[in-house]
Design a protein around this nucleic acid. Structure first.
Lengths: 203, 203
DNA sequence: GTCTATACTTTGATAGAC
DNA sequence: GTCTATCAAAGTATAGAC
């Protein structure tokens, strides 16, 4: 059961503070409904926070909150995936576990919780340059992490980046197909394809 | 809501009618800004149509218009991709041409015009069951068309569907990465991976 | 810092004149 | 059928009491 919550309650209180709850709430809503589909009122309602707290903690409004959530969700998801990979006996099975785990989460949440920033990334790409850059940085970070694992596992350096991009594309694309069809077969197919591409790149 | 085919092009003029212009306008805006990000007023402004025409031609409002655009865009994109594939000397180069052509369009439009329904599919997946089903039908149609080409090219039937899902996932996932980074490298990497997967499935 | 009330804009949708 | 005016609701953002 992949736990995506509780990074570290910062300091003085042991209960998550208002700012933290707003970030959590926003992340969950963005993942399900996207950026434009999520209202600030909806966010504070779910966070059990007063409306004014949004502008108290995020003077830049929805855009600042969105940028922070994109970076935060991106970092947490990267940690989750790398933890799964590093816990596996080899890279192939680690990769497979990522796709399989993603499929399990989708089924558990009735195909609501896929990639935490994919929907937002597509929505803002041609609309908001600040947020577009935030999503680009997240994807670049994932790519770096994947390249490091691939090269460490014996993939030639000149092939590692293309392989990383292809594997991430397989995961993101499979999320789209799986959520639309409410079926995990795209994730199984994409996972198998990712493993095959890794084996090919090693040879 | 039974008739999805063009009901009655006002035959007296050969210029595209109001209904057609609304559909075109909506399709373009959906591709760039998504479903919730596109307003009805924005649609009629771009279509040079009066606001009331939307509800005259689409009594079901935004949802009916959205469903029709999803099916229409899905069909047109399928025809475009299959035309590219069928024009190529072999399936491998046809597949590669699809990814290369998609990259060219992205560059021409400053990374605005990628898949016409991907953003909408993610936005509506957990929100609107009617539209979710529309996107699922489009993806299922693309999968069928790809399976037909793959089996005709010698891919065993039991591998053809997983291969089709993986190739479509590669394309959709590469669109996300390319639009976020404003870079076509993900499309080149994914295209090469798609060709490799096809070669592997044939062997 | 917490919380409420409100301003202003935009949304999808409707009514009715022409 | 075309087009305009307008509605109620929801959106983001702000002001200010406590």
């Amino acid at each position: 059961m992949a736990d995506l919550s509780t990074p570290d309650p910062p300091s003085r209180s042991d209960r998550p503070g208002t700012r933290e709850r707003i970030l959590d709430s926003t992340a969950e809503l963005f993942r399900r409904y996207g950026y434009t589909g999520t209202g600030l009122k909806q966010i504070v309602a779910r966070a059990n926070a007063p409306f004014g707290s949004i502008y108290h903690f995020f003077p830049g409004g929805k855009e600042q909150l969105g940028a922070e959530v994109i970076h935060r969700s991106g970092r947490m998801y990267e940690e989750l995936l790398t933890a799964i990979v590093d816990a596996a006996p080899d890279l192939e099975s680690g990769l497979w576990d990522c796709f399989l785990g993603a499929a399990a989460v989708l089924v558990e949440t009735d195909y609501a919780d896929a990639c935490p920033i994919e929907t937002v990334a597509l929505e803002v790409a041609s609309v908001n340059e600040t947020l577009r850059l935030a999503t680009a940085e997240v994807f670049a970070g994932w790519t770096r992490a994947a390249v490091a694992r691939f090269t460490a596992a014996g993939v030639p350096a000149e092939r590692a980046e293309d392989l990383a991009l292809s594997v991430i594309a397989l995961l993101e694309g499979a999320f789209v197909l799986a959520r639309a069809a409410k079926d995990v077969q795209p994730l199984r197919a994409a996972g198998e394809a990712a493993v095959a591409l890794l084996e090919r790149a090693r040879a």
